[in-house]
């Protein structure tokens, strides 16, 4: 009797979990369907493991930044400067490595630079009161420009970086197969989920994005919360720059260009809204692989690059429409 009650209860719990994550689940199913479609259109590519390993190699760079953008959007703000932060921090990493030969020193400088850029964004947004879209647009140009000026347009080859232990830790192949950056992406996704949904700080982020007045009346330091979110974004962009430079064993001044749109596509397809106060880390994680597989799939299917953007657009619009419909039903 008791046992059967417990079973009913646990079934209810399962059902509740399914309902709670149904948007993410449907997204996951859609991603699988798209991959199955690609398996049919180009079996030679999609029935072999290589293509999936290549996703694991390339998706994490956009993915790591998409995690940060998810948190920024939950705050009700936006950041357009992250591709430039990625390039600029990458430059700091490459330069420090070049000068000292130390990966660790480069790493510290790179992350600190990203954090500083985020701090500047956050201070201008909260203390001066400029909208984040304006501040970060300016920061995007400023940092991209600085990068070009400092590097004088040249790339930097990271000689000997392959032999460093930190190379193996960040972008090596775990077990000779799995790219380490994919594990970093998964690890950071778990951290971001814990931070946003299980930590006091995340609670503040959610309320600041939901209703700033409420947050303020309940004694939340709104400015500090926003500043920290932008610092976090800067740090994640810098980390992406570090990973990308290491993987290519080269830093180049146009790094991050073209990542802006894919990053936002990832986050929106994942189901995070523009309106703040809510977001999904799991959705972003799945979305990164969905967006990442699209381009490869379209090209492998024999369609020209022109089709890539068309199909991108189609998938994104379908996904965000579905999210909006679900959201309305949930009464948000």
């Amino acid at each position: 009797m008791d046992l059967s009650n417990m079973r009913v209860r646990s079934n209810q719990l399962h059902l509740a979990a399914v309902m709670k994550y149904r948007r993410q689940l449907s997204l996951f199913v859609i991603t699988l369907l798209i991959i199955v479609l690609f398996m049919i259109t180009s079996p030679r590519v999609f029935l072999r493991p290589n293509i999936y390993l290549s996703f694991l190699t390339t998706v994490p760079f956009v993915g790591v930044m998409a995690l940060g953008i998810t948190v920024v959007l939950v705050t009700g703000e936006i950041d357009l400067s992250f591709p430039a932060v990625m390039a600029f921090s990458g430059y700091v990493f490459a330069t420090l490595y070049e000068l000292t030969g130390s990966v660790l020193l480069g790493l510290v400088g790179c992350i600190a630079t990203g954090g500083m850029a985020g701090l500047c964004n956050g201070l201008l947004i909260t203390k001066i009161g400029i909208p984040s879209i304006v501040v970060t647009l300016g920061m995007q140009f400023l940092l991209r420009g600085s990068t070009h000026v400092l590097a004088a347009g040249f790339q930097k080859v990271l000689r000997g970086v392959v032999d460093r232990p930190l190379y193996a830790i960040f972008v090596g192949k775990v077990g000779g197969v799995v790219p380490a950056q994919a594990l970093w992406f998964a690890f950071l996704a778990v951290c971001m989920w814990l931070l946003l949904f299980r930590h006091k700080f995340g609670d503040h982020v959610l309320f600041v994005g939901d209703n700033e007045n409420t947050a303020r009346m309940m004694g939340i330091n709104v400015d500090r919360t926003k500043i920290l979110v932008f610092v976090l974004m800067g740090v994640l962009a810098a980390f992406a720059g570090l990973l990308d430079s290491m993987r290519m064993r080269t830093w180049w001044p146009t790094m991050g260009e073209g990542y802006m749109m894919t990053t936002f596509a990832t986050v929106f397809v994942g189901g995070t809204s523009m309106f703040g106060g809510e977001g999904t880390i799991l959705g972003t994680f799945i979305g990164a692989f969905l967006i990442g597989s699209l381009e490869a799939g379209i090209v492998a299917a024999g369609l020209t690059g022109f089709w890539t953007q068309f199909i991108y657009g189609l998938i994104i619009l379908i996904a965000v429409t579905l999210h909006a419909v679900f959201r309305r039903r949930e009464g948000i």
Binding site: D203, N211, T214, G219, I220
Partner: peptide
Amino acid sequence: EQALGLKQSLWRNIFLGRQLT
């Protein structure tokens, strides 16, 4: 209605600013 976050759960609203951590 002003001191509630409408998109957030009841428990988040009740413990906002005084979270049990």
